[in-house]
Structure formats: C-alpha cells, structure tokens
C-alpha cells in the first residue's frame, strides 16, 4: 500500500527530556493505533505530525505535503483533522456554532455548503439533537464528540486523534469506536490510546512507543503473537513471571518466561504489549 504519511528521524527535546528520539514511520490508509506508557512521547509525536509543534530534527510528509515550507504546511493543514488530548472550547458557543467556527478556520467559506457539512459531521457523531445547546451545558462525552466533529469537519484525509476515548463510559466508547472505524474508511487515522481493546478492535496496524522511540511496528496479530507461549496459568503466583494476577476463576495468569510444562494460555494483545514494553525497558536499562 502507498504510504500517506511518512516520517524519518523525528527528534524533539523539551529541556533535558528527549520527547522524540529519531522516530521514523510510514502510515497507510486505515486506523493505526499508537500505544505506550505515559511519557512515552505519544502526544508529542501526534503534535508534530499535526503541525502543532515543529520537530527539532527530521522530516515528514502527509499526503505528499512537506510542512517544512509554509505553503506545504498550509496544504497539509487543509487535509488534516486533529483532536488534541485536552480539547478546549468556547463554552458559550453552541455545538453547531463551535464546529462551524472551526470549519471557517479550515477555510470552508461557502456558507451553505459549510453548514451542510457541519450538520453532516454533527449527525455523524450523533449530536444532531443537541447541536443548538451551549457547550457548557453538554456532558463530558458529548463535548468529546463535539471535538471529534471539529476534527472531522471538512473531510480531512489524515486524522490525528489523541486519546479520544479517555473518560468515556463503555457505551460511549463503543459508539466512539464505531465513529473512528467509519472515519478510517478511505482515510489515514492515527489513534493514540491507552486502551489495548481499542487497538485490537479498530486498528489494522499498531505502533508501540516508549522513551521517545518506536518499539514495535506491525499488525495487532503480530503484537499478540509476541506473547505466544509466554502466558500461562498456575495455582500460585509464579516468581518467574514479569506480571501475574489472580483471575476470577481463582488461578493465576502469568506473563513472562514460563517454566517447563506450564499450562499455557491463549495470549491477548495486552500481553504482547506488556512484553514489548518489558523488552524496551531492558533495552533502555542496557
């Protein structure tokens, strides 16, 4: 598949902290998940790719546009939708007004067409009913959907979503997954999240970041496969396990290097993620 986003050697430093350390990646159409612990550099990578902050070193293109030049950045931004980690709103605006405002800033100047577009995205995120309500009267989940609508308006080719499902209840999260899956059809979506289920259910690819670097790049199945033969069940917590916890059935589920003859279990994506991080830690320590 032809990559829509390709980056090489992105580095960024905040004071003494190396937020991004020589990150290279290629994204294709569909939803790519970005997993990583807090402080791994996920938000920084997303902000760099969304042109909110320039990198210290490295280059990237989105849909063929290079943001290193003003014209390239403008073109890139015309095809970009961005949902920041903590979206801000004008609390006195109605949902419609706010998305309309963002649409104008995205240079949608034909009023009729724009209003149609705003209504379409508000429909798409299920806010048609409350579009005349002031944002300060909306619930947290609804506000998050207003922010998603603002990202989606103008039909961007590249969508950057920074932890969009944080703070949502299970039903809302299901609904959000549906929306993101929809958005991923014919678009490139980069989704940062702490929820491994989101990745397992949505993404055709997953990146794992730690310490400002990409530690894994592959399909969710490949990430899961990393844990094959490394998850087992025991009656006591196994001291050899990297992680282990008592499950509802009373037996222990262990992840790590199993002893001979252990009762192996079917691995999940989360197991693969944990083991990848563990390897990354070991690498950093070394």
């Amino acid at each position: 598949m032809i990559p829509t986003v390709s980056a090489s050697g992105l580095s960024l430093r905040y004071g003494r902290a190396q937020a991004l350390d020589d990150v290279s990646l290629r994204l294709t159409q569909g939803v790519t998940g970005l997993l990583g612990p807090n402080g791994a550099g996920k938000t920084t990578l997303l902000r760099v790719l969304a042109t909110a902050v320039p990198a210290d070193r490295g280059a990237f293109t989105v849909l063929g546009h290079d943001p290193a030049a003003p014209a390239g950045r403008q073109e890139l931004r015309r095809g970009l939708g961005y949902l920041p980690q903590t979206p801000g709103f004008h609390p006195d605006f109605t949902a419609f007004e706010f998305v309309d405002y963002v649409a104008i800033l995205k240079e949608l100047t034909d009023r009729t067409a724009r209003h149609r577009e705003v209504r379409r995205v508000l429909d798409q995120v299920d806010l048609a009913e409350v579009r005349g309500k002031r944002i300060k009267k909306l619930s947290g989940g609804m506000r998050q959907r207003v922010a998603l609508a603002a990202a989606l308006v103008g039909d961007p080719g590249f969508l950057v979503l920074d932890e969009p499902t944080v703070g949502l209840d299970p039903e809302q999260r299901m609904r959000f997954r549906e929306l993101i899956a929809q958005a991923g059809e014919g678009r490139t979506v980069l989704l940062s999240t702490h929820q491994t289920e989101d990745v397992a259910m949505l993404c055709h690819r997953v990146l794992v970041m730690a310490g400002g670097r990409i530690r894994f790049d592959g399909t969710p199945a490949e990430l899961t496969a990393r844990a094959a033969g490394r998850v087992w069940s025991s009656t006591e917590r196994d001291p050899a396990a990297k992680a282990g916890w008592r499950t509802g059935t009373g037996s222990f589920r262990n992840v790590g290097s199993p002893p001979d003859g252990a009762d192996l279990l079917e691995p999940t994506l989360e197991d693969g993620y944990l083991l990848t991080l563990d390897g990354a830690d070991a690498e950093v320590a070394a």
Binding site: A50, A52, Q74, R77, R78, Y82, Y101, K106
Partner: peptide, 18 residues
C-alpha cells in the same frame, strides 16, 4: 486568550489572519 486554542491549533487559517 483563547480557550479553544488547542482545538484550533492546526487549522489552515494562519495565526496572523486570526
């Protein structure tokens, strides 16, 4: 002051114009 600053950080309309 702009509470929506982060939401509108990456729009094509330049900061100068805004």
């Amino acid at each position: 002051d702009d509470p929506a600053r982060h939401t509108t950080a990456t729009v094509p309309t330049r900061r100068a114009l805004r």
